[in-house]
């Protein structure tokens, strides 16, 4: 069969790329399984597979496998992780901010407090864009329209309850507009929202920086605000929400969690492995290629961040009436 030849070649390519970096060092872990609660190809899956490569390239963990368990915004994978990986010190799960919303929207019986936070890896800031032909030049033009008639401003972004939706609600709230009154038009991922913005069918677009970056650079879309704390080094000309008087900072972060019920020592071992993995050239290259912002935060610092982040997201999801029950 022809396919076996092709796959053998592919396997060879995979193996050779894994052999590129073989610096021997103390091997703490024999094998680790990373669960990506998403279909292959998506952001969480890419994170899991990049981490797989990083862990193996640095000889930090001998054998790393990636398991995909997509469905319901990752909550199906989370439920499986909580029940069947309990106490297993050799499993990790990729997840992120999106899941906090998904847990509430889907009425998931399990949540992130049941798993062990290990480290926040990367993130992506949200950006507000209008089409190049739009009359809106800066954020204040948009907020003026919003205050005058919230229904006249249609927001194009990802699915209901996604970070895009939550950011729109937070912006409305901070300018004194009832967040439930925003006219949010949910789109399936990919280019659907972009097309609606480029075609001028919605007033403003909101999504991760990476999704709009090509259009912004080509001058087809105008970025009017970014949700980072400070201006990003490589996009100095896009002002933050904060400097335009809207006190909202939001990053769509991705992180690794350990199984429920693992010991402190087991947790420390996994965190140490991740600490090493993010220093490998393989990981650095991944961040570079995918334009992911490095938001590395591990151990207790990550736990502290989570304790503040979860209620903040939960509050806005509840305000929007998206939470089930």
């Amino acid at each position: 069969m022809k396919i076996t030849q092709a796959t053998r070649r592919l396997a060879a390519a995979l193996a050779s790329s894994a052999l590129l970096f073989t610096t021997p060092c103390a091997m703490a872990l024999e094998a680790v399984k990373i669960l990506a609660p998403a279909a292959p190809g998506g952001g969480w899956d890419q994170t899991a597979r990049s981490m797989q490569r990083a862990l193996q390239s640095g000889d930090i963990v001998k054998r790393v496998t990636v398991d995909n368990k997509p469905g319901a915004g990752g909550t199906i994978g989370l439920a499986q992780f909580v029940t069947s990986s309990k106490g297993d010190p050799q499993t990790m799960m990729v997840t992120g901010m999106v899941m906090i919303g998904a847990i509430l929207v889907n009425g998931s019986p399990v949540n992130l407090t049941q798993v062990t936070p290990l480290a926040r890896l990367t993130g992506e800031y949200e950006v507000l864009v209008v089409s190049a032909a739009s009359k809106i030049q800066k954020l204040s033009d948009l907020t003026a329209l919003l205050k005058a008639n919230p229904g006249s401003v249609s927001w194009g972004g990802g699915s209901a309850g996604a970070p895009d939706h939550l950011l729109a609600a937070m912006i409305a709230k901070s300018v004194g507009v009832d967040p439930t009154k925003i006219n949010y038009i949910a789109h399936a991922g990919g280019g659907e929202a972009q097309a609606a913005i480029l075609g001028g069918h919605v007033t403003v677009g909101v999504s991760g920086w990476g999704e709009f970056a090509p259009q912004i650079k080509a001058g087809k879309l105008r970025a009017i605000a970014i949700s980072s704390e400070q201006r990003l080094p490589d996009v100095k000309d896009v002002p933050t929400l904060k400097e335009q008087g809207i006190d909202v900072v939001m990053a769509n972060w991705r992180a690794l969690f350990g199984a429920p019920g693992i010991s402190e020592a087991q947790k420390a071992e996994l965190v140490a492995a991740i600490d090493k993995a993010v220093k490998t050239p393989s990981w650095k290259e991944t961040l570079d290629k995918n334009e992911w912002t490095d938001l590395y935060l591990s151990g207790d610092a990550f736990k502290k961040f989570l304790d503040a982040e979860q209620p903040r997201i939960a509050e806005i999801v509840n305000t929007l009436g998206l939470a089930k029950k």
């Binding site: 069969m1 076996t4 092709a6 796959t7 053998r8 396997a11 995979l14 597979r49």
Partner: peptide, 14 residues
């Protein structure tokens, strides 16, 4: 058997 190996080894699926 071949299908199993194409999936798991070739495509990295489980």
């Amino acid at each position: 058997v071949p299908v199993f190996f194409i999936f798991t080894r070739g495509l990295g699926l489980n």
